[in-house]
Design a protein around this nucleic acid. Structure first.
Lengths: 153, 153
DNA sequence: CGATAGCGTACTAAATCAGTACAGAATAAC
DNA sequence: GTTATTCTGTACTGATTTAGTACGCTATCG
């Protein structure tokens, strides 16, 4: 439950791939290949991330995308907000009707807000750089059974 | 984003209503009226909550539902799990395909798990009793401008 | 000016979720 | 023991959301 939209997950995957070479300009096509994700989907995600300022786009012959900030300065919360908008578990159910028609439902907003804030904090605590580190560590452990440069296991 | 299914929200509303008289046996019908929610929907939610052990059901002429535990022992996490299953923001996208076909996607599970745990903690921190208290306080402030018995405001 | 690569919008299809219906089983009253 | 009441379970339908696709436009480089 509490499922994150798939596109958001894709965004994390794509950005992690980009973070492997943060300075490099990378094309939609190249990223689609490296992540094994369908090209149009990757394009959609990249556009969205650009609109939110996480990526910078360069058009023209040798154009492509690049991270706008360092991987340490991009949090999972940033990515989630970019794709799905602000973090809010409930919208007081029928916010379009002025105020809730259920006697004391709105009254519980206080507690929900606290929950929302806690979730947001959790998402803000993890950066792209963290994701990358975890990923590389897992890769080392899987592909190279003998740990050489890993003291802090 | 990160929207909770509507039924889960309903469940919280219904349980809060029940917590106002925790000992009382309450019928589906009565609860539907008190919450202004459609009867079949309320019935569905109550069934689900019973299956998860949050409520006890009594059949027959004077039957109905009752909280199985004290409101202080029922957390929002319990309710969410009852309605939507275990808290998991991602399911590693295509878990049905053995392991991810995207090179190093699974490698990020560590970070996602940390995020999941943080969210779960946030949900576990709030009990039905907390919800009820917040609601009653809000009600007092709205309906009765002059605070009489509120020292800890 | 032509090729490449991103931009924006709109549309279609699929999956999920909410809501409804209905037949069955248990309990209590008469 | 029959009847009324209230929960149980499953299956279906409709609506909403989300994912995916298509296509025409704009910008940059050679």
């Amino acid at each position: 439950m509490l499922r994150l939209p798939k596109l958001t997950d894709y965004a994390v995957v794509i950005l992690t791939a980009m973070a492997q070479m943060p300075e490099q300009i990378q094309t939609t096509n190249g990223l689609a290949q490296r992540t094994s994700l369908p090209l149009p989907t990757v394009a959609k995600v990249l556009k969205q991330l650009t609109k939110s300022g996480i990526l910078s786009a360069l058009r023209g012959t040798h154009g492509g995308y690049r991270l706008s900030r360092a991987p340490t300065a991009i949090t999972v919360a940033d990515i989630v907000v970019a794709l799905d908008g602000p973090v809010a578990v409930t919208d007081c159910v029928d916010s379009q009707q002025g105020h809730c028609n259920v006697e004391n439902r709105c009254a519980m907003r206080g507690q929900w807000d606290a929950i929302n804030r806690a979730i947001k904090s959790a998402l803000e605590a993890v950066t792209l750089a963290d994701m990358l580190k975890t990923q590389q560590k897992a890769w080392l452990e899987t592909e190279q059974p003998q740990p050489a440069a890993q003291a802090t296991a």
